[in-house]
Design a protein around this nucleic acid. Structure first.
Ligand code: MN
Ligand code: MN
Ligand code: ZN
Ligand code: ZN
Lengths: 125, 125
DNA sequence: TTGCTTTTGCAAATGGTTTGCAAATATTAT
DNA sequence: ATAATATTTGCAAACCATTTGCAAAAGCAA
């Protein structure tokens, strides 16, 4: 992997951000400075290198995020923003699946959908 | 909703089946007897009527399944099949999210990926 | 059956993502 | 620093699951 301006700029967006970003949003954050194919290719590269992770929500869009720890997201269906939370009981479920169904578990996806505090207040007005 | 042969045939596929089916697979199971648009339209109708539910996995394909109870799936990345399991701790997570983050929780998505018993044995050969 | 409404098939459109290819850029060797 | 080599980029076209407009076909109540 060579170091290019595109790659540095893209990765910088994730530095102090633990919420997932779509390729399209990355494109916008960089003011269209790079072609979408460049964004897509590099996000995927970063994922293969372990620098980013990705998740697909029910909107079928791939979102990328940084983070080596294990955590999950709740998505606000009103303002379309994510928030991270660190609770997860999948260890025990994973154990159950291994022992009772015989699977070798490789991973899991867990996310919540709801309406955030702000949006609830907006709706009351 | 009128009763048509297409609708009866489609819904029949889900009767004794609690694993998710994609529109394309439904199309194949019915030997291409109906146009894909008919399949897509009706699956979505069934979902809106509460006769089916849907879930999007990391492959970005919508899968439909029948079931009023709450359960989840594990997906075998080798043979691309699903198996249902009934364990879920999201009640407590939901409570956490409501109380600590202020969200009104509408739902959650949880699924596991792994390698099933059969496929593990296949790999040993 | 008639008449009205919903559903279907077909073809074209959609939208996020991927890909081939030639030009541009980063890296390495001279 | 320059030239040679390998990688990356931009552009346009392709992909692929899904959706949509529209006219023909099918369901349904009377
Ligand atoms: Mn987890
Ligand atoms: Mn659950
Ligand atoms: Zn919100
Ligand atoms: Zn398997």
């Amino acid at each position: 992997m060579r170091s290019t301006k595109a790659r540095r700029d893209i990765l910088d967006l994730f530095h102090n951000e633990d919420v997932p970003l779509s390729a399209d949003y990355v494109y916008e954050l960089l003011n269209g400075e790079y072609d979408r194919s460049t964004i897509y290719r590099n996000l995927k590269n970063f994922e293969n290198n372990g620098k980013l992770r990705s998740i697909v929500f029910s909107d079928k869009i791939t979102y990328f995020y940084k983070g080596s720890e294990h955590f999950h997201f709740i998505y606000c269906v009103k303002c379309k923003k994510f928030e991270r939370f660190d609770l997860c009981y999948s260890e025990s479920i994973s154990k159950y699946i291994t022992e009772n169904l015989g699977y070798k578990v490789l991973g899991h996806t867990l996310y919540f959908e709801g309406i955030c505090k702000n949006c609830q207040e907006e709706m009351k007005k």
